[in-house]
Simulated scan of single mutants.
Amino acid sequence: MNILENNGNKNPDEFYSSLKEKLEATHDFPEDYLFKFIITNDEAKLTEIYRVFDNMKFTMSSKESKNGKYTSLNMNAFVLDAEQVINIYKEVGKIEGVIML
């Protein structure tokens, strides 16, 4: 699921409503869900993302870009439903400079 896919001119409510429908159609919640983010190599941004996943069971892997400017993060978290996935995307979306895939 690519959060960056072309969503036309939808307002955020329409976008998240559409995302919820897609998630419910393609996933069998509760389950592990893979979140993918790209951040600048900034420890503070990583800490902010960790805070979003606080109180959740998750594993994380990361890979630094060739030039060392960016890090890609894979956060595999156990989520209960599509609403929880959307809430996580909304919270991470508040962190400046994070690209959500």
Rank of each mutant, 00 (worst) to 15 (best):
K22R: 03
T71K: 15
G93V: 00
I88A: 03
L73W: 07
I39G: 03
L80H: 13
D81T: 04
I95T: 01
N11Y: 06
L34C: 03
K22P: 08
N55M: 00
S62C: 00
T47P: 07
L80N: 15
F53L: 08
Q84T: 09
I3S: 10
E48I: 08
E96P: 09
M60W: 10
S62V: 00
L19W: 13
L34Y: 08
E31F: 00
F78M: 06
E96G: 14
L80C: 03
I99H: 10
Y70R: 08
N87W: 06
I38D: 00
N55H: 05
I88D: 00
K69I: 04
A77C: 02
F35Y: 15
K57H: 12
E24C: 01
V98K: 04
I99L: 12
N9V: 14
A82E: 05
I38C: 06
I99C: 09
N76L: 11
T59S: 13
K22N: 02
S72P: 01
M56V: 08
D54W: 04
N7T: 07
I49S: 11
S65C: 09
Y16Q: 02
D32S: 11
L19Y: 15
D28R: 08
T59A: 11
G97L: 05
Q84V: 02
K63F: 05
Y70G: 04
A77G: 00
E21I: 12
A82K: 01
L46A: 09
N76P: 02
E48V: 03
I95A: 00
K45T: 15
N9E: 12
A82G: 09
L34T: 13
K63H: 10
E96Y: 12
M75R: 09
M100E: 08
S61N: 11
N6P: 01
E5V: 07
S62T: 00
A82Q: 05
V52L: 01
I49D: 10
K10E: 10
T26Y: 06
Y50P: 05
K22V: 01
E31Q: 13
K57S: 14
T71P: 03
K36T: 10
P12D: 14
K90Y: 04
T26H: 09
K57A: 14
K94S: 12
L73F: 10
P30G: 07
